[in-house]
Amino acid sequence: MAVAQLTREEVAHVARLARLELSEDELDTFTGQLADVLDHAADVEALEIDDVPPTAHPLPLVNVLREDVVMPSLDRVEVLAAAPHVEDGRFVVPRILGEAP
């Protein structure tokens, strides 16, 4: 199952998903560079390994839990001081265009 060559439009779509703006030149450069990496990954993509289970994580741990005990929170002044823009003890963001999904 070969995946088709990466297109400029796909790179533009991915940049939008990742909240990055690319100039036309950057779009060309990145498309070429990412296509190279994906070409290199064609060896992996071509492997017939349907029966092999995935390994997402190297550790075989389960049920690592903490007790429901309150720990100190951060100092509010320090938290807000790190923020680029604060109003009324909250973080300010520009106009939001849509509801959360």
Binding site: V44, L47, I49, V52, P54, T55
Partner: peptide
């Protein structure tokens, strides 16, 4: 998904 399987290999 394929890459995770390679990890198993």
């Amino acid at each position: 998904g394929k890459a995770l399987k390679v990890r198993t290999l």
